[in-house]
């Protein structure tokens, strides 16, 4: 069975929702802002509100919650290591001792900090995956290109970056398919990929990677020729079929995100004092 026939490019989930319809630039901007805010929040109230906010977006975007949680799987290991290190080796002197484990002292402050750091990681992944779940790769690259365009003057190759992303995305399934073919071809010649220790397995991949690279270079050359034949000459004078347009809903979404960010980032006491 060829796996690559079922691979979809990127993580995009095409559930129609208000979040999907937002301009990609709005979404990229909002997520960038939230990523900063995640590191600014200092108290439990802030995190509670942030969680509620993220959850609200998940519901609004009609992405199944289970799907969002599955996106956390790759960071489980990182999360565990971070938690353990921060709980046992926090380096916090003094504080309220919770328990001792041999030479290790676990304080309340250390646990709180570990939880905060772990939570930040989770929130980061949820926020960014919300972007990739609700924005197709095409919109994403378009958005990035247009956001970077003002920086062209200081030498940021906005168009080239976007083009490279598009081509990379376009060729992921093609190269996956090719990898499968090469693995099968090498297996037919007696290569073993599932036996032996890590090093042996890594070495077994060399006869897969070499032809894969050779063919990738050949593909690159042919693609370059085909692009030239289609009058490609870089970003100069190039127009785009799809125009991005800010709609009122984009202003609304951005406004809500900025307001929410301010609320999350300022300590609870400041608000209490302010409201008095």
């Amino acid at each position: 069975m060829e796996l690559s026939r079922f691979v979809t490019i990127g993580q995009y989930i095409a559930t129609e929702s208000p979040v999907h319809r937002l301009d990609p630039r709005t979404k990229i901007g909002a997520v960038t802002l939230l990523m900063v805010v995640i590191f600014l929040v200092r108290d439990f109230t802030g995190y509670a509100l942030l969680t509620a906010f993220l959850f609200g977006i998940v519901v609004l975007s009609r992405i199944p919650v289970s799907h969002v949680l599955r996106g956390l799987r790759p960071i489980v290991f990182l999360l565990a290591v971070t938690l353990i290190l921060n709980v046992f080796f926090s380096g916090i002197e003094g504080g309220q001792v919770l328990f001792r484990l041999g030479p290790l002292v676990v304080t309340r402050e250390a646990v709180v900090r570990a939880v905060f750091i772990g939570y930040r990681l989770i929130a980061l992944v949820v926020a960014t995956s919300l972007l990739t779940f609700t924005t197709s790769p095409v919109e994403l690259t378009d958005g990035i290109e247009r956001l970077l365009r003002p920086f062209r003057r200081i030498g940021v190759p906005a168009h080239e970056l976007a083009m490279m992303m598009t081509i990379a995305l376009r060729f992921i399934p093609t190269l996956l398919e090719e990898t499968e073919k090469i693995i099968k071809a090498q297996m037919a010649r007696g290569a073993e990929f599932e036996r032996g220790n890590v090093f042996r397995r890594a070495r077994a991949l060399v006869p897969v990677l070499v032809p894969l690279f050779v063919s990738a270079f050949r593909r690159a050359e042919e693609l370059a020729l085909a692009m030239e034949a289609r009058c490609y000459r870089g970003g100069e004078k190039r127009t785009r079929m799809k125009q991005l347009r800010f709609a009122p809903r984009d202003a609304f979404a951005m406004g809500v995100t900025v307001a929410a960010s301010a609320i999350f980032a300022l300590p609870f006491e400041t608000w209490v004092a302010f409201l008095r």
Binding site: V138, R170, L223, M227
Partner: peptide, 10 residues
Amino acid sequence: NPDNQLVATL
């Protein structure tokens, strides 16, 4: 080669 001349993801 049809695979090596299509540029975009759609």
